[in-house]
Simulated scan of single mutants.
Amino acid sequence: MPQETPRSRTEGSERALNEAYDTALLDLDGVVYAGGEAVPHAVASLEAASGRGAQDGRGTSAGRGTQGGRGMRLAYVTNNAARTPATVAAHLTRLGVPAEEADVITSAQAVARLIAEDPGVPEGARVLCVGGEGLRVALAERGLRVVESADDDPAAVVQGYGGPQMEWGALGEAALAVGRGVPWFASNTDLTIPSGRGIAPGNGAAVEVVRIATRWMRNPPEPRVAGKPLPPMHRETVIRTGARHPLVVGDRLDTDIEGAHAGGVDSLLVLTGVTDGHQLLAAPPAHRPTYVDRDLRGLLTGQPEVTGEAESGFRCGGWSATAGADALELDGDGDPLDGLRALCAAAWTAAGEGTCGLAADTALKRLGLAG
């Protein structure tokens, strides 16, 4: 369950995270790769965290994980329902990342289980599928039959990202079926996705099309959603990995970190993706990570403790941070990440259950983290 009191600071860990947790539940885009290429330090760090590498990239031994010295298990968890786990694993392998098909968990798998377990959907039922190969394969694995027309008597409608070539007519068929009262599901509702050319519409945008087209109904329906940050995705991941003490690793506060919070598990935010210092300091309780680090090398080390109180200032490493009347104030020197951790404590304590509105640009500029 999510913690009852708001997190007011990041936590410390004397043990390396790959020793303290049995499984890393890793987001992909912005964490492992970006634009199709591996994020710097990702390959070596994951090899070491899983026990396959000799060193962690910082010159210290690694791989003494919780699984009999073999290192932590690596699981790759993605909201993208377009690609099959086999395709994702092949991509990771080409990048040099240790991955097998069974290590990949997608929102397509999570929504397929959600549909198959729905009491109103008979075994082997027809499902009107608006999505790519990954979603179709996941439905077939659950014994569900894919159809493409509202006139094929579907027992459910499901939407998943199908790539930029998705046909407009497929959304029309989904809207017709939902308008007839057919149960509606979605792999995820991310409005946008990153691409090599910039930000593109995601599955959430396609879901909005069907939602708009069914507004005429007296009680317009809402889809049952499986992907991060909602519980079905976390459940699917735990079932498939057998994780007992997992650590969610991500770059997004509103999916990765919120999903960890909803599942009641710890999280590591890495600053290789979309989240910047301003967003982290303004994070509401459900978006506050357990740990923060630059990149995946953070799996291979302990995490420094933040000490102090609001009145005396929060300290981490050589830095001290306080919440002033109008701005967050920072003093000291040392590792910029320690300064960011101290600032988080000052900001989150000042915000309580809300968001911190204090100016932070001067403090973040001093750390070289202003964006």
Rank of each mutant, 00 (worst) to 15 (best):
M1Q: 14
E4I: 15
R9Y: 08
R9W: 10
E11S: 14
E19K: 07
A20M: 04
A24P: 09
L25G: 09
D29F: 00
V31D: 03
V32P: 06
G35E: 08
G36T: 02
A42P: 07
V43D: 09
Q55F: 15
D56R: 04
G57W: 06
R58Y: 13
T60C: 14
T66D: 15
Q67S: 15
G68Q: 10
G68A: 11
T78A: 03
N79I: 04
A81M: 09
R83L: 13
A90R: 12
T93P: 11
P98R: 00
A99I: 08
E101M: 04
A102L: 12
D103L: 01
I105M: 05
Q109E: 13
Q109S: 10
Q109C: 05
A112Q: 00
R113N: 11
L114A: 09
L114I: 06
I115N: 00
D118Y: 09
A125H: 01
V130A: 05
E141M: 11
S149C: 08
S149E: 11
A150C: 09
G162S: 05
G163V: 08
M166K: 12
W168L: 15
G169Q: 14
A170N: 08
G172D: 10
L176G: 09
L176A: 11
A177S: 04
V178M: 04
V178A: 01
G179I: 01
V182K: 01
F185R: 00
S187Q: 00
S187R: 02
D190N: 02
T192S: 10
P194N: 08
P194R: 04
S195E: 06
R197I: 14
G198R: 07
E208I: 13
R211C: 07
I212V: 15
W216Y: 14
P220A: 01
A226N: 00
H234M: 15
V238Y: 09
P246C: 06
V249K: 00
D251S: 08
L253G: 10
T255Q: 02
E258M: 13
H261F: 15
A262S: 13
G263Y: 06
G263P: 11
S267H: 01
L268A: 01
L269M: 04
Q279N: 08
D293P: 11
L300E: 03
G302V: 06
G308C: 09
S312Q: 15
A323C: 02
G324I: 07
G324F: 03
A327F: 06
D333I: 11
R341V: 07
A342H: 02
L343H: 03
A347Q: 05
A350W: 12
G352E: 01
T355F: 11
T362F: 10
A363F: 03
R366A: 15
L367K: 09
G368E: 05
G371R: 13
